[in-house]
Design a protein around this nucleic acid. Sequence first.
RNA 1: GCGGUUGUAGUCUAGUUUGGUCUAGGACAUCAGCCUGCCACGCUGACGACCCGGGUUCAAAUCCCGGCAACCGCACCA
Length: 587
Amino acid sequence: MPEEKKAADKFTTIDELARRRGFFWQSNEIYGGVAGFATYGSLGAKLKQNIERKLRELFVNKLGILEIESPVITPSKVFEASGHIDHFKEPMVECLNCKKRFRADHLLQEHAKIGESESERMNLKELNEAIERHIIKCPECGGTLGKPKLFSTMFKTTIGPYAGAVGYGRPEAAQGIFVEFRRLYEMTREKLPFGVLQVGHALRNEISPRQGLIRLREFTIIDLEFFFDPEEPNCFLLKDVEKEKLRLFLAESKLRGSEEITEVTIKKALKKGYIKAEWQAFFMACFQKVLADLGVPAEKQRFIEKLPWERAHYSLQSFDQQFYDERWGWTEVSGHAYRTDYDLKRHMEFSGQDMRVYKECEEPVEKEQLIIKPIMAKLGPIFKRDAAAVAEMLSKTDPKEIETSLKKKGHHMLGKFKILPEHVEIERQKVVERGSRFIPHVVEPSVGSDRLVYVALEYAYHVKEGRVLLSFPRDIAPVQIGVYPLVSKDGLPEKALKLHKRLLDEGFMVDYDEAGSIGRRYARADEIGIPLGITVDYDTLKDDTVTIRDRDTWEQVRSPIAALPELLRRYFRWKINFKDLGKPFKG
RNA sequence: GCGGUUGUAGUCUAGUUUGGUCUAGGACAUCAGCCUGCCACGCUGACGACCCGGGUUCAAAUCCCGGCAACCGCACCA
């Protein structure tokens, strides 16, 4: 905009631009709005779609990852299994005097020497009793503490008319993938490794969301769950990325209080054990590329390793991908967690469904198996009604243990039951093992779509000669082409409208504008990041050629209309550059 | 949630201290028209605002209370 506000920071400037030009704004403004919700306007919605499309192109199209779409509302059982109900809430106490709030369990750990695992298992009543017993006062002012209460950051609801049917808005899209694992695995024709992607809304009832698109209560999450065999953890795509460098901010540096960045190739990061899973390293490289393609240079990116107590309950190792933000410093865009078999294992326990996969051995292994068979004809008369239970116990005990015991002592005690050699038949059987069952491991890259939109905006924002440009990479620009008559008379608008229609018909996102001077229209277009401007002038009427203008350099070339569709298609697929679009032209 | 600051058209803002000449002023944007022959030209006109709800007062954008929201700190951020 005309006067440049030196004082305003980039975030404020972008926020204002976004509202004015219709990228996004706060929802429900007419009622005052509530923090943490945003509505995208047509430009923002398109930008977001384009960014998501790029991710799909990379992961779904090129890497063959499956995409699914599952519901936001999820029965509570799912989050009991996933551990979110236990972990997505915090017991808080408020000081009755100074009103400051504290984590109840943290206070007990610090002031009552109660261990972390113990304090975390306590319910509110126990916490309250423990606080009273240890006479814990407010660490700030010494005031009396109120009763602890839980603050859940999941949105709770009831499903249907029954209050007992509790559901939650999902805080991540991942669980929608884990619960469908069996079917998805069948869809890959039972082959590992494979990945599943989901793009969708997630809900987190943040205590105090600020920062616009960066922290929303309802947002779009892109979760990618990649399943692999922990015994074959090698990433067969690693060679494509192993020479790429990552900037790591390792936990060990953090613990030392250092800000040291370890810049290493993927290969070295794995060799040195900085990153534990190859696939995780691979996806980290992918996301570094994604951010680079959105305009964030490598030196404005880093991966920060989470300290053990900062990690989610399901994670063995986590990195957060951060970009440098002028307002807030290093800000997370994506998280990379090694979730191991945690989720599938839990769903297996809670649902009773088998989440294991079957793996054939390379060669069948012949094994001799020891089998202890109860002779019921003998057990019955001796143990009477306990006979069945004894047989059951026999089957659950390690046969080897029974055999040695019988050999050495002449009997084996099963609880109070004394088993003698004549009660059982010992058999050695040859069994051929053709395979085994195991729970796959998972690495998860997870990225906030809204944050990507913000990143793209922040890094596209430029000021040239006092005018604002959004220099979006050409493949994410919400509008690709502007078509303008040089002046709005002498048949130029008619000619330009025809061209506009034709380009729309070719599948491009095209704007038409004839209001105001040509310079004004270029400026308007630059401000919403339209990469190319096509102008119909008096020569167009004679020879059917038009000028094409580059948003970033303001240079122009001249080209015949007939050649445009093919040229433009190739331009937007990054096959050719601006200069290849036509002959140089001076207006 | 707490403390501080703040809330005027699409955007940025004047006015708020000291209530009344405020029928709320300006700039930019937008729209209509003229103009316009390649980078925000100019002219004419139009549209458009006191965050919401109470209170004090003859009178409230202005003072008071409550709510909501934003910004900055604290806390939270799986």
